[in-house]
């Protein structure tokens, strides 16, 4: 894969969006950083490039804000501990708010971009 291909087929995420995706991923249950990254990449068929590097600052930022909590845990049948992040009640609330905001944003952008469908 060349660099050019990269920039064509993959979309860079804005910070706020990454936060939302992380929170959304954690709705499914606790996960560690690697899992979160892989999950986002897999569900979007590799379209959304989650910079692993930007994921960790985001996670620590969310923890700072009290939206996620973390704990070192042994996965079932695993041999090593990983740092698992889980959604807090405040995080759930935040996700709901972000989600509806995003929905409104997409709807209004859609109305501008594809007005025919409205009529």
């Amino acid at each position: 894969m060349t660099l050019q291909e990269d920039s064509k087929s993959r979309i860079e995420l804005m910070q706020g969006t990454l936060d939302m995706l992380v929170l959304r991923t954690l709705v499914l249950g606790p996960a560690h950083g690697h899992e979160i990254a892989k999950h986002i990449q897999r569900t979007t068929d590799d379209v959304l490039q989650v910079e692993h590097g930007s994921l960790y600052p985001a996670l620590h930022r969310l923890e700072r804000k009290g939206w996620v909590a973390s704990k070192w845990e042994m996965p079932k049948g695993g041999k090593r501990e990983f740092k698992y992040y889980r959604l807090t009640p405040a995080g759930k609330k935040q996700l709901t708010a972000e989600h509806s905001k995003w929905r409104r944003l997409v709807a209004s952008i859609g109305r501008v971009m594809e007005p025919a469908r409205e009529g």
């Binding site: 910079e51 692993h52 590097g53 960790y56 600052p57 985001a58 620590h60 930022r61 700072r64």
Partner: peptide, 17 residues
């Protein structure tokens, strides 16, 4: 894939505020 570890650490520290 992960990127510059030093920079990530620096970014995380700044996320610590």
């Amino acid at each position: 894939a992960l990127g510059n570890v030093l920079r990530i650490e620096e970014d995380v520290r700044s996320a610590w505020g």
